[in-house]
């Protein structure tokens, strides 16, 4: 019975029409919220548009992109997070998962505790973290200097602010932990037993048995981590706002990326340009850049799915 629908050449077959019916909400959504915006983003990237007046400006927006230092700073910051935070989260998540799967007593309790921070609303978690690391009021600086370690002004020093965000990311590593735990439990126990008899130690077991089995999951976690990081917005925005002590009073203007644009991520700059400065055309240039980069990683991810969707056809 397999393949009967596909073998029929008629595109308007009952099967295809029925599928179309079921898919129609998503198809409409895809057209309205994906295809159309993408096309008009290209169009707007050649316009000056502040939501009131539209004026074609040729390549002006694209030229400005080349000269816009903040945009390049934002790219560098986003890259930093991709290169440092994403792998650290994956490693930490894997480590915690390894630990929890090996605990015989209390594994459930630990799993709950370790997963909990992943559920905390981003804004709430960020607020808590900034205050926790705030010099003068937070305990972390006091503890660090009490034991004689350097006590940086985490979110107030550009050399440390991204590390502060990384700490926040590690704290909410629970989702990765759960995925890795599931993958680790999938590794057949007999393999370990066989390896133990052969005298393979922990590290050898990990590289020769665990790693090959969980490789796809690891790859998946890395790529989705990268894509999530390309959208990194809330934590950086809230942390900068709170850490700068901006009071929204007359004359004190909040600049995203505090301190020294060190937490300015690409989506933040796009948002700033489009919805704070109303340089909509320029925001579209930035959007297309983001699209290009996100697509590269999406394609890598899609390779993982090659073969999926066909298995029962």
């Amino acid at each position: 019975m397999a393949g009967t629908a596909l073998s029929r050449p008629n595109p308007l077959s009952r099967g295809n029409l029925r599928a179309l019916l079921y898919l129609s909400p998503w198809l409409a959504g895809f057209a309205i919220f994906f295809v159309y915006p993408l096309v008009s983003t290209v169009y707007f990237s050649f316009q000056r548009y502040d939501l009131f007046t539209l004026e074609p400006v040729g390549l002006l927006n694209w030229e400005y992109f080349l000269k816009d230092q903040a945009a390049w700073t934002a790219i560098r910051n986003t890259l930093w997070l991709v290169v440092v935070m994403v792998p650290l989260r994956v490693l930490f998540g894997l480590g915690v998962a390894q630990l929890v799967t090996r605990l015989k007593a209390g594994a459930g309790v630990y799993r709950t505790i370790f997963y909990l921070p992943a559920l905390v609303p981003l804004v709430a978690g960020t607020l808590g973290f900034v205050f926790l690391l705030n010099p003068g009021t937070g305990p972390v600086q006091a503890i660090l200097s009490a034991v004689g370690l350097p006590a940086p002004d985490w979110f107030g020093d550009p050399a440390w602010s991204k590390w502060g965000l990384t700490l926040l990311g590690l704290w909410s590593v629970g989702d990765l932990m759960v995925i890795f735990m599931a993958a680790l439990l999938d590794v057949p126990k007999q393999l370990y037993e066989a390896a133990a008899i052969d005298g393979a130690n922990g590290w050898r077991q990990f590289t020769s048995i665990t790693l090959p089995v969980i490789r796809p999951v690891l790859m998946f976690a890395l790529v989705t981590g990268v894509i999530q990081t390309l959208q990194y917005f809330t934590q950086a925005e809230v942390a900068a706002r709170v850490a700068s002590g901006a009071t929204d009073s007359a004359g004190s203007v909040f600049t995203p990326g505090y301190p020294d644009q060190s937490t300015l991520t690409f989506p933040q700059w796009l948002f700033q340009q489009g919805f704070r400065d109303y340089a909509m055309g320029y925001a579209c240039v930035l959007a297309l850049m983001l699209f290009a980069v996100a697509m590269v990683f999406t394609l890598i991810l899609l390779r993982q799915f090659r073969g999926l969707g066909e298995e029962d056809v």
């Binding site: 998503w26 917005f233 489009g274 959007a287 999406t298 899609l302 969707g309």
Partner: peptide, 19 residues
């Protein structure tokens, strides 16, 4: 299915202006 995954992965900021 591939398009579903693509839209899932797309940063929302990409199409923010026209929407």
């Amino acid at each position: 299915f591939l398009l579903v995954i693509t839209t899932m992965m797309l940063p929302p900021q990409v199409v923010a202006v026209p929407i």
